[in-house]
Design a protein around this nucleic acid. Sequence first.
DNA 1: GCCCGCATGTAACGCGTTACATGATTGA
DNA 2: TCAATCATGTAACGCGTTACATGCGGGC
Lengths: 195, 195
Amino acid sequence: MSLRYALLALLRVGPLSGYDLQKQFTQSVGHVWHAPDSQIYPELRKMQAEGLIEGEEQPRGERGTRRVYHVTPAGHEAFLEWMRTPLDYQRVRDPAHLRAAYLETTTADAARAFLRAHIVQWEGELEQWEGELTHIEHLSNPMLVRRLEATPAEGHAETIAWKRFAYEGLVERARSEIAWARRGLDLVDEITAQD
Amino acid sequence: MSLRYALLALLRVGPLSGYDLQKQFTQSVGHVWHAPDSQIYPELRKMQAEGLIEGEEQPRGERGTRRVYHVTPAGHEAFLEWMRTPLDYQRVRDPAHLRAAYLETTTADAARAFLRAHIVQWEGELEQWEGELTHIEHLSNPMLVRRLEATPAEGHAETIAWKRFAYEGLVERARSEIAWARRGLDLVDEITAQD
DNA sequence: GCCCGCATGTAACGCGTTACATGATTGA
DNA sequence: TCAATCATGTAACGCGTTACATGCGGGC
């Protein structure tokens, strides 16, 4: 549901091809909203059919072509409309906490393996998000630079502030997941010590 | 993917009908893993077809029937196997943080509305999870009581400890989302003060 | 000449959501 | 007798995942 708005957010700054968008989805935006190429290309076609974007075929070498998309006025409006609309929050569906609630049904080793994997998982995310944060602070994210170049200077601080805000929230979340799993490991130790 | 294991976790304690399971999914387990009835009934049929559970038709009044399911040995094994298996973590797809990263594109009012809705959303979850925590502490959750009755007394403390652990993690997450959105509201104030 | 990166997709499948649909029992 | 609760589903649709599929361009 949000994929198209993530795509619009990127395209609003300037035209990009499906491939370029896909790269952004494995880099910057992808740290917040992941999408594989098999989802991006069809979505772009749909958005074009609905008049939110327009694609321009560009020759590439002798026979190759690439399609560069740009946002139409209707697309700009759709994005701004989305920003004004309440988000629809998905119902909670959290496999890690579901499993955590039943850890007494398994062995101490399995419980530890699960908790350690949880730590590894969130340490990975943490690294990505902290990396993005430093890219934001140092203005070393090319997409952010393009965005700043396309907007008047007096808005730059605000743009950066919101990016930082978003990633700080994610960093905080990752830290809290890691701390939680560590407490879980302590709990396994306490329980096994009793036997 | 985890739905069937959530169902197995409940059924392991003792037989239940689809309707009873559905109630648990709007109460206790549903605070971790939501599922509507339209998903539960077909899933139970599938699980029966795969030999994980067995259903027994019970008469209800003159003409009504209800199907009560119990876990087969294969079902018990499948659950324990799942507990030993690494979770597959979904890629990040977080609409709230996606939007937060682009709040400079909208008005201060829209930004505030979004952040306030985020706070309301997570305060709702927080209330649910804190409620569950007190139910756990006071042993006033009927499903937990059934679970304890079905297991030897020396395991009770551990069972309760893991439930508490799971819900504490969720409570922490909700608090952190709320704190984050409040910082966002402060940021809106700072930005509007500059103009 | 070969490989890596550029570039664009299709197909099948599963999970989840929403809406729709029906009927029986029990207690006020 | 009427409403609430018990009880069980079907159908259509959309989003996302995984696997599959293809071919060009540019640099070494």
